[in-house]
Amino acid sequence: MPNSPEPAAAPLAPARLRVATLVVAGAAVAVVAWACLSAWGAVVHGHPAYVVLLALTLVGGVVVGVRALRRPPARPGWRWVLRVVLLVLAAAWVVLIAWLRPFVAVEPALAAMRPDDAVAVSERATRYVLTPADGGDGTAVFFQPGARVDARAYAAVLRPLAEAGHTVVVAKQPLGIAFLAVGAFDDARDAVPADRWVVGGHSLGGTVAAMEADAAGDAGEPPAAGLLFFASYPAGDLSGSLTAAVESVSGTEDGLSTPATIDASRADLPAGSTFTVVDGAAHAQFGDYGPQPGDGTPTISDDDARHQISAAAVAFVDGLVG
């Protein structure tokens, strides 16, 4: 009698699992290599959390690959099922590590990170600081980057604030996610002396900055004097609780924080909040990190957009000091 298909197919399952394991292990090593080669500057100058995950992924990929080559294939059974589940989780982990690769800062942001006679630059594992050479006027700006964006990408657009006399602190977020850096503002206030603070952020960073500015008042601590949105908006209604002055800077060609969304955010902010719209600017022009998926197409140059965004930010902070 001819063999049934079940017994004939059974021996293939362990072999296929071994091949799949080797593929996932190889993908893990490849993703780590790709992230390091294509985003080395952002990896080295970013929050160390991503470096740790890359190292763990590399070690895990090598160990799993070697074990898959040396050990005999697992036979079908509960342990085989467990290995299949773990393999699926490992594949999802590799995809996550690839997705977390940051958008890398490009010029002129990198040049703006260099100190000169006007601005001193210091860098730590969780932040960098742009300090006016004369010590500043006692006003500091704390800034949260957008999701997965190299923190250095905002140096050029924020440096004019330091040149105007205001200390600037930019957070390096764990894995580039602002929600994982909700305590960064408190850390900055402990580390950087200032008489008043302005909290700001780009995109998701602005949403978290709004939470931090609102929470500062709720905790009974000196509230932030100002809240600065770059292509961003609050997650909820702050119109009755937020005591800080608000400036929202947005672009007409933004495909992520769209003009309609920014306009709708007016109802969630206190009366008297000001809105500056940069005609022709897109989402990624609020930093220097190249194009971003889902964004609109800008109709003005990066230099023009950066100049207008910086000018609006400086005018807002200067107005708080005066």
Rank of each mutant, 00 (worst) to 15 (best):
P223S: 11
V149M: 06
R159C: 04
L204C: 11
G165I: 09
V168Y: 04
G206Y: 05
A155M: 08
G205W: 10
K172S: 00
A153C: 08
P145M: 14
S122M: 11
H202W: 14
G200V: 05
A140Y: 06
A171I: 04
L130F: 09
A164K: 00
D137H: 11
H202N: 12
L204W: 03
G176A: 01
G146P: 05
V157F: 07
D190C: 05
G176Q: 02
L161F: 12
V121K: 04
Q173I: 02
A191M: 08
A147C: 00
H202C: 10
A164Y: 04
D150P: 06
G135L: 13
Y128P: 00
Q144Y: 15
A164M: 10
R196H: 15
A133C: 09
G138R: 12
Q144N: 15
G165R: 09
Q144S: 13
V141T: 05
M211G: 02
T131Y: 07
I177M: 14
W197T: 02
A181I: 03
G206E: 07
V157K: 01
G217W: 06
K172H: 14
D218N: 02
P174C: 07
P193Y: 05
S122E: 11
G176V: 00
A156N: 08
D137Y: 01
A209Q: 09
A156S: 15
A156R: 05
T139I: 13
Q144V: 05
P193F: 07
A213I: 00
A194V: 12
G165M: 13
R124C: 00
A224H: 06
D195I: 12
A171G: 13
G136S: 12
D186G: 08
V170D: 03
T207E: 11
L130P: 01
M211K: 00
E221Q: 15
R127F: 08
A219R: 15
V129N: 02
Q173D: 12
E212P: 01
Y128S: 06
A171M: 13
G176H: 01
D214L: 03
V169L: 11
A188G: 05
T167P: 06
G205V: 13
L180N: 09
A162W: 02
A224Q: 04
D134I: 10
S122A: 15
V192P: 01
R196E: 14
A178E: 06
G217L: 09
G201Y: 02
A155E: 02
D187V: 09
T126C: 00
D150S: 09
T167G: 05
L204S: 09
L161C: 10
A188K: 03
A133M: 09
A153H: 01
A219I: 09
A178L: 05
E123I: 11
A209E: 07
H166M: 11
T167M: 10
A191R: 10
D190H: 13
T167K: 04
A215P: 10
A188F: 08
D134E: 10
L204K: 05
A191F: 04
P193E: 00
A147E: 06
R189V: 13
F143C: 08
A225P: 10
G201E: 03
V141F: 03
Q173M: 15
A224I: 00
A216W: 10
V192L: 04
R159Q: 04
A178F: 08
D195Q: 15
P145S: 14
A181N: 08
P160Q: 09
P160M: 13
A147L: 12
V198W: 02
G146C: 11
